[in-house]
Amino acid sequence: MDFRFSQDALDLADGARSFLDGANPPERLRSEDGRDSLWPQLAALGLLGVLAPESAGGLGLHDDSFVLIAEAAGRVCLPEPLVALAAISVPAVLATYPDEVGGLVRGDHVSPPVHPLAPYVHDADKADAFIIAGPDALYGVPSSKARLTPVKSIDPNRNLFRVEADLTDDLKVGGAGLCAVMAVRGATYTAAQLLGLTDAMIQMATDYAKEREQFGQPIGGFQAIKHHLASAQVKLEFARPVVYRAAASLDVDSIARQQVHAAHAKIAANEAARFASEVAIQVHGAMGYTFEVDLHYFMKRAWALETIWGDTAHHSMIINQAVIDGGLDIGPGTTFDAA
């Protein structure tokens, strides 16, 4: 089995990274009220259509290509809901109303996902419609039929709304299976963004440790700091393959197995991000608490993402049910089973 990413996936991620790094520097995170949306450029560069078929103007690639792009979006703390739209909404619309995918890919329509595990929607006031996971079915709700209530997020770059609607039968677009798929995708791709955020926070802390001097030398020269940063990096490196595996199993493995992989990914990424944010703030000392340092934007995004699409307790329960109650085979012999 070849575990490497394809050259196409790596090249596309490189292209996306280069755009995101240039278009969304940390200074942009400081101008939440007056900045122009990157949405037209995200659409023009093809980032919304990586998972959409070529007939709809997309690239027709699999999730193991988009996971790296989601990680890159996390790394720059992108305010635009690129990942939710491209990795959750596009596949949901593809499964229900494939003719409508083109509009999403071109950026003409914005239909964010709403799920009990992620009930608050970023930039919901700019949406045309919502894809809402109800108790037993998936619903397509035009914005005219949705009720939006602003909700304040800890993350200043997330413009959240609670989205509610009367989920009547005429709005039903798919069954409960699609709601489960949405949850798995949400957890996997939130984990991917957390990887990027963790990477960014470690990088910021490392840069600061090389620059800030105390007792006549950069603080990064002290073992206590080095060990902290190394431990954070180890958490990240251990979380990465878990998240990549979850992405690789999307739409390939059984939904039960996808759920376990996604749960594992979200737990590992939550843990890495939480640990890295604590280490980063420690390394920055009192500066880490100030608005002058960019760290807090990344840290608050990580805290926000940690709780959506299932927190660690939620995903621990999924694994518990699968392994203890469901009799899921675990161990080296079954790691790569696509059952």
Partner: peptide
């Protein structure tokens, strides 16, 4: 300009 993803694929 930034290269679009479809153009990165076509360039191959």
């Amino acid at each position: 300009r930034y290269a679009s993803l479809p153009n990165i694929m076509k360039a191959k």
